[in-house]
Amino acid sequence: MQVTLIDSPVANTANIARALRTAGADLHITREAEAIRTAEKLVLPGVGSFAAAMRWLIDMRIDAAIRDAVDAGAALLGICVGHQLLFEASSEMGMTRGLGLVPGEVRIFEGRLPVPQIGWNRVAARGPLFAGVEDAVFYFVNSYAATHALHEIASADYGGAFTAAVQKDRVFGVQFHPEKSSAAGLRVLRNYIQWT
């Protein structure tokens, strides 16, 4: 199954590429807006700064290409900051606009636990992305998250509930790192790759 991985410099693309290949993807890695616009199955990775990642998408005109692809029926999976970019905005650095593909906003954790969250966390999940996952524990590295998102398909608790994954039609997002989540993470990637 062909998967197009968006080669963002604000991401750990190499690790995600290796995990996607292990999970069975026939991988195409690109920064070309045109290739992204015509793709059928996209993966948008991201680590670090929401604003920097969004800035790169806009500068490369990839933001519009992603929206066009989704409008044309492509599937999309956002990972970590890539997941956050799917929302309307993030409170990082004032307020930064996102892709707006799923409703909701991303905000900094406000509990009493140390930020960033670094480590494994148990999620309550449902839907095709998590089919066959035996123990839904995934690896997270994040300071920001959506809470009670409208299209939430997985939630977890870090000093308060937060959205661990979303699905709106053909657009998916996971706040955790499937490429660092051992068998459970690879299963999620395989489910996305095989999803139709």
């Binding site: 509990g111 009493r112 480590g119 494994w120 966390n121 148990r122 524990v137 977890a156 608790d157 870090y158 000093g159 308060g160």
Partner: peptide, 10 residues
């Protein structure tokens, strides 16, 4: 606050 959160973080 700490004891009221679910015992879920491994």
């Amino acid at each position: 606050a700490r004891v009221s959160v679910p015992n879920a973080i491994p």
